[in-house]
Amino acid sequence: TTLHFDLDGKKLQYTGVSEEIARLVEELKRRGVDLKEIVRILEELLK
């Protein structure tokens, strides 16, 4: 799965993300978590 974000005018793309992580990101968005925080979490998970 590939995730795309537009953060402060920067286009971020994460490829090869598992379905689980993609679902987690969608859930965080639904809960109103700040996009910067979501990206920070995502980068930690993908290390």
Rank of each mutant, 00 (worst) to 15 (best):
Leu24Asp: 14
Asp6Phe: 09
Lys47Glu: 11
Glu43Met: 04
Gly32Ser: 15
Ile38Arg: 03
Glu19Gly: 07
Gly9Arg: 00
Glu44Trp: 09
Val25His: 02
Leu3Ile: 15
Leu24Lys: 14
Leu28Lys: 09
Leu45Ser: 11
Ile21Asp: 08
Gly16Cys: 06
Lys47Leu: 13
Val33Glu: 13
Val25Met: 06
Thr15His: 14
Lys29His: 14
Ile41Asn: 08
Lys11Asp: 11
Glu19Thr: 09
Tyr14His: 01
Ile38Gly: 00
Asp6Pro: 00
Gly32Arg: 07
Leu42Gln: 00
Thr2Ile: 08
Leu42Ala: 03
Gly16Thr: 03
Leu24Ser: 15
Lys29Phe: 13
Leu7Trp: 05
Arg40Ser: 12
Gly32Lys: 12
Lys29Gln: 12
Ile38Met: 04
Arg40Pro: 05
Leu45Val: 08
His4Ser: 08
Lys29Pro: 04
His4Val: 12
Glu19Trp: 09
Lys36Ala: 12
Leu28Asn: 08
Glu20Leu: 05
Thr2Phe: 03
Ile41His: 08
Arg40Lys: 12
Glu37Phe: 06
Glu27Asp: 15
Glu43Leu: 04
Thr2Cys: 07
Thr1Ile: 15
Gly32Asp: 13
Leu7Asp: 04
Gly9Glu: 04
Arg30Lys: 14
Lys11Thr: 11
Gly32Asn: 15
Val39Arg: 02
Lys11Val: 05
Glu44Leu: 10
Leu46Thr: 05
Leu12Asn: 02
Asp34Ile: 11
Asp8Asn: 05
Gly16Asn: 15
Ile21Gly: 06
Leu12Ser: 04
Ile38Leu: 07
Lys36Pro: 09
Phe5Ser: 01
Arg23Ala: 15
Leu35Cys: 04
Arg23His: 14
Glu44Thr: 11
Val39Pro: 00
Val25Trp: 01
Glu20Ala: 10
Lys47Tyr: 12
Thr1Ser: 09
Arg31Cys: 11
Glu26Phe: 08
Val25Thr: 04
Asp8Met: 04
Leu3Cys: 04
Phe5Tyr: 02
Val17Phe: 01
Leu24Gly: 13
Gly16Lys: 04
Glu19Ser: 09
Lys47Val: 12
Glu37Leu: 09
Val33Arg: 07
Glu26Arg: 06
Thr1His: 15
Leu28Ser: 06
Leu42Thr: 04
Asp8His: 03
Gly16Phe: 04
Gly9Leu: 01
Tyr14Phe: 14
Lys36Cys: 06
Ala22Tyr: 10
Lys10Arg: 10
Glu27Ser: 08
Arg30Thr: 13
Glu44Ile: 12
Glu20Ser: 09
Leu35Trp: 02
Leu28Gln: 09
Glu44Gln: 12
Leu46Gln: 04
Arg23Tyr: 13
Glu37Thr: 10
Gln13Ala: 11
Lys47Ile: 11
Leu28Arg: 05
Gly9Pro: 00
Tyr14Asp: 00
Val25Phe: 03
Thr2His: 08
Ser18His: 06
Gly9Ser: 03
Leu46Arg: 03
Leu24Ala: 14
Ile21Arg: 02
Glu26Asp: 14
Lys29Ser: 11
Val33Lys: 07
Glu44Pro: 04
Glu27Gly: 08
Leu45Ala: 15
Arg23Asp: 13
Val17Arg: 00
Leu42Arg: 00
Gly9Thr: 02
Lys11Ala: 07
Ser18Thr: 12
Leu28Phe: 08
Leu42Ile: 06
Leu12Trp: 05
Glu37Ala: 09
Gly32Thr: 06
His4Ala: 06
Arg40Tyr: 09
Ser18Cys: 03
Glu20Tyr: 05
Gly32Leu: 11
Arg31Asn: 15
Leu45Glu: 12
Lys29Trp: 10
Glu26Gly: 11
Glu43His: 05
Lys11Cys: 10
Ser18Arg: 05
Lys11Trp: 07
Lys10Phe: 07
Glu37Asn: 07
Gly9Lys: 01
Leu45Cys: 05
Gly9Gln: 02
Val39Met: 04
Glu27Arg: 06
His4Met: 09
Arg30Gln: 15
Ile21Met: 09
Lys36His: 14
Lys11Arg: 08
Thr2Arg: 03
Arg23Val: 13
Asp8Leu: 02
Glu44Ser: 12
Lys10Gln: 13
Ala22Trp: 07
Leu45His: 11
Phe5Ala: 01
Phe5Lys: 01
Val39Ile: 14
Arg30Phe: 15
Leu28Glu: 09
Lys11Ile: 04
Glu37Tyr: 06
Asp6Asn: 05
Leu12Ala: 04
Glu44Arg: 09
Ile21Thr: 11
Arg30His: 15
Gln13Thr: 15
Lys10Tyr: 07
Asp34Trp: 05
Ser18Asp: 06
Glu27Met: 07
Leu28Trp: 08
Lys10Ala: 10
Lys36Glu: 10
Gly16Trp: 03
Glu43Val: 06
Phe5Glu: 02
His4Asp: 15
Ile38Trp: 01
Lys36Tyr: 13
Asp6Glu: 15
Val39His: 03
Asp6Met: 04
Phe5Asn: 01
Thr15Ala: 10
Glu20Met: 05
Thr2Ser: 10
Val33Gln: 10
Leu7Arg: 00
Leu3Tyr: 01
Glu43Asp: 15
Gln13Val: 15
Glu20Lys: 07
Leu7Ala: 02
Leu24Asn: 13
Val17Gln: 01
